[in-house]
């Protein structure tokens, strides 16, 4: 008889990471304040893990814990996504007041730099881009110091 537990775990692992990636980007880009989604994601994650302790079978226990831990990780990723926007590694959403403030202060960009095909060579940056990157690096060091 075929064992389907692994198939369901594979689906949940793959779809969980996929939805997490897309969902985290969307939530961070559309939330004026990142803390409400972080709290909702983290508490839903904890709840699913508690449910998994009492689930009637291994498949349901595993599926709920995988989704639960993924949601808890996504809560952390919402915070990290905000840092990516501030590092100019992710695009800012001008319609979000929090991002609009970053854009006005020159701390973020709207361009999605990852939206390109690999070229087989390092990306050549223009002189203003190099100056901007160096400036951002100095600012980060000042913040961290």
């Amino acid at each position: 008889m075929l064992q389907f537990a692994g198939f369901w775990m594979a689906m949940v692992t793959f779809l969980g990471i996929w939805c997490g990636h897309v969902g985290v980007r969307w939530l961070e880009a559309h939330s004026p304040n990142i803390w409400p989604p972080i709290v909702v994601l983290a508490s839903s994650g904890v709840a699913l893990n508690v449910f998994s302790l009492f689930a009637p079978n291994l498949t349901l226990a595993g599926v709920s814990s995988i989704i639960g831990i993924t949601l808890m990780w996504d809560a952390l990723e919402v915070y990290r996504q905000q840092r990516r926007v501030l590092k100019k590694h992710a695009p800012a959403n001008p319609d979000n007041p929090r991002h609009a403030a970053y854009l006005a202060a020159g701390k973020a960009i709207t361009e999605d730099l990852l939206n390109r095909e690999p070229q087989g060579a390092p990306a050549v940056l223009s002189v203003p881009q190099r100056i901007e990157r160096r400036q951002a690096s100095y600012e980060r060091r000042e913040v961290e110091a």
Binding site: L53, L58, A61, G62
Partner: peptide
């Protein structure tokens, strides 16, 4: 109460 589900969740994280 069974910890097997959480063990699988932690395995997926790892």
């Amino acid at each position: 109460m069974s910890w097997e589900g959480i063990a699988l969740g932690l395995f997926s994280l790892g």
